[in-house]
């Protein structure tokens, strides 16, 4: 795979992939980086590099999460410190124009089921097509479309439940 193409993908997808990998592990940067390394080492370019990157990032993040859980006994204090730091860190840059609170969106995402959260992050911030989303979620594009619409409606209801005034209340 050409290096310029990898650089373009990294520039456009690294942030969304990091938000995507954050669901499973505490070091999503490592998962994203390992996914790009695997992409660079691929003998053949994937048919859909974006979907391939999301799938690989998920696998890497799960591996990292397993490693973290194995060493949990040795890192109890470190995890507690990380949890304390995580409360103050942000994964979405706040935008004052539309007034949507990034923290509330993150809370709403964390309240969703993991597959729904995956689909919203991959579709909204990863800008995957429904064909790529179907490949990522191992379903048909029509099923991916239906599931995505349902997840998005569910997230909207969650945000409305928090009485956020700037969210469109029409469903």
């Amino acid at each position: 795979m050409h290096s310029s193409h990898i650089q373009e993908l990294f520039a456009s997808l690294s942030s969304a992939l990091m938000l995507y990998a954050r669901q499973w592990c505490k070091t999503p940067e490592d998962a994203v980086q390992e996914a790009f390394i695997d992409l660079a080492n691929c003998p053949r370019e994937p048919v859909s590099p974006k979907a391939w990157l999301y799938t690989t990032t998920r696998r890497k993040a799960l591996n990292i999460a397993r490693a973290e859980s194995r060493h949990r006994n040795h890192l109890v204090q470190s995890i507690q410190q990380n949890n304390a730091d995580r409360a103050s860190e942000y994964w979405l840059e706040p935008n004052t124009r539309n007034g949507i609170a990034a923290s509330e969106v993150l809370d709403g995402l964390d309240s969703l089921e993991p597959p729904d959260r995956e689909m919203i992050i991959a579709k909204v911030w990863g800008e995957l097509t429904f064909e790529e989303l179907a490949e990522l979620m191992n379903c048909s594009p029509a099923s991916a479309y239906r599931r995505y619409v349902d997840a998005l409606n569910q997230l909207k209801r969650l945000l409305l439940a928090t009485n956020t005034p700037h969210v469109n209340k029409k469903t």
Binding site: L19, E93, N95, V124, L152, N168
Partner: peptide, 18 residues
Amino acid sequence: ELDQFEQDLKSLTPKQYP
């Protein structure tokens, strides 16, 4: 309306890769 909500979500940019 759902499309508008999606655009609002997209306005929140993810955290940049360190």
